[in-house]
Design a protein around this nucleic acid. Structure first.
Lengths: 144, 144
DNA sequence: ATCGTTGCAAAGGCTTTGCAACCTG
DNA sequence: CAGGTTGCAAAGCCTTTGCAACGAT
């Protein structure tokens, strides 16, 4: 959020801070959820910010590489993006019927458990786990 | 695997057992991993089984709906499919650099933990969780 | 014989790319 | 000013669909 941090991050990656990028980040800060490229594009149009769809894709990709956003996938054929909020991870409950998605913050026991699990997996498979994603599929309140 | 079970399953869903379907399932049984539609298609071609790509897609979809296969997504833009092996779930370690994927079977403590977690989430969000998927991203043995 | 299934090619949907004009540091 | 960034349209991919011929029950 603080504009300073943005500038620093962009400088570090040798990227420029443009109005498109700022506008895209504002969309995520306002909507606070997982958005597809087209949803971001539409949201910008609604705010009279004329940003081409290609630019939206390019910047979602850039912001993902910078670690500011990350991709999530719910099985509907589109990539979605959400703000990376450290250190609070969140996972998703996806409704198999209506496709709605509930975000929930990792419970404390859960974070602890996963952390231990990651250590175990790192050892066992000589891996270096950097992040994880968990999806639960089922029926939501309305559809069950 | 037992052909009998297939016949029963297909009869139940009012579908016919065709040579294409049998060939597709054989590919999964032989290769025993997550395959994309095109990988299945290529594998069939290699076996001199002429099955159109559209048929591959249609049957992967059908088999998924029947619960025989399920979809997984590793972030590379393609859907992958794998055989559903009850009751042993497995999760994935995905390398951010080379894209390789390691499958590992859920550890016992893990199954237990997730099971409890699912109950908690069902109560908390009035959900009915039917399945889950977990992905760990990082660097593999070769790339770390 | 009926009705699901297949192949082919065309269409569709999401994402990427080429390139000239534009803007930031 | 130099070099990253943008918009537009075209191209690229993966996936789905229409339709006539085919095949399983």
């Amino acid at each position: 959020m603080p504009k300073r941090e943005w500038d620093r991050a962009f400088a570090y990656f040798k990227k420029k801070m443009t109005s498109s990028r700022q506008a895209i980040m504002e969309v995520f800060e306002e909507e606070k959820k997982h958005l597809s490229a087209e949803e971001v594009y539409d949201s910008l149009k609604g705010k009279n910010q004329k940003v081409g769809i290609a630019t939206v894709y390019r910047n979602l990709d850039l912001l993902t590489q910078m670690g500011i956003l990350h991709r999530v996938y719910f099985g509907d054929g589109l990539e979605h993006y959400e703000i990376t909020r450290k250190p609070i991870h969140h996972h998703h409950l996806v409704c198999n019927k209506c496709g709605s998605v509930i975000d929930y913050s990792e419970l404390i026991e859960e974070s602890e458990f996963i952390s231990k699990l990651e250590q175990e997996l790192n050892t066992r498979y000589n891996f270096k786990i950097e992040s994880h994603q968990m999806y639960f599929y089922g029926l939501c309140k309305k559809c069950r």
